[in-house]
């Protein structure tokens, strides 16, 4: 029991990432408000970003800039951070596109609730 608790405490970023991911997935799947769905997606993606960046971190590691005086120094891994920069850009563009779609939906249906929109669509057909 103690070892499990120790593992959780040492790996707290991963633990936080799992909780964030579950919160995000739950929000996306259960809320009918389009904005809340979008926020859920963003929370989920942040969880993945957190996981990547935590994986690149080394406790006590230096900034990854090659230094002539001390070539043996312990550096953190810069690759996950660089990858997540791309991931954030992707996430921003998804968010922007989804917001544009929400505006169009609001203009044609007058609501941002997915359930109401589905009802109105059924009445039309």
């Amino acid at each position: 029991m103690k070892t499990l608790l120790d593992k959780l405490i040492i790996n707290y970023p991963y633990f936080a990432a799992v909780i964030l991911f579950l919160i995000g997935a739950f929000t996306v799947l259960t809320r009918s408000n389009l904005f809340k769905k979008l926020i859920g997606i963003n929370i989920m993606e942040s969880a993945i970003f957190l996981m990547f960046i935590a994986a690149g971190n080394i406790r006590g590691g230096a900034v990854p800039i090659l230094c002539q005086s001390n070539p043996e120094a312990l550096y953190i891994n810069p690759v996950p951070s660089a990858l997540m920069l791309t991931g954030i850009v992707v996430s921003v563009s998804v968010t922007a596109f989804a917001l544009a779609l929400i505006i169009r939906l609001y203009q044609s249906y007058g609501t941002t609730d997915a359930r109401r929109i589905a009802e109105m669509k059924r009445e039309v057909t």
């Binding site: 991911f21 997935a25 997606i41 993945i48 994986a55 991931g87 998804v94 989804a98 929400i102 044609s108």
Partner: peptide, 29 residues
């Protein structure tokens, strides 16, 4: 407007999918 709705639903589910793909790639990495 039906196209906007279909696109939004697609976008949400597809982004959920890509978050999972990114997670899977993360674990492999």
């Amino acid at each position: 407007p039906r196209a906007a709705e279909a696109a939004f639903n697609y976008l949400i589910l597809a982004t959920l999918g890509s978050a999972l793909i990114l997670g899977g790639i993360g674990f492999l990495y």
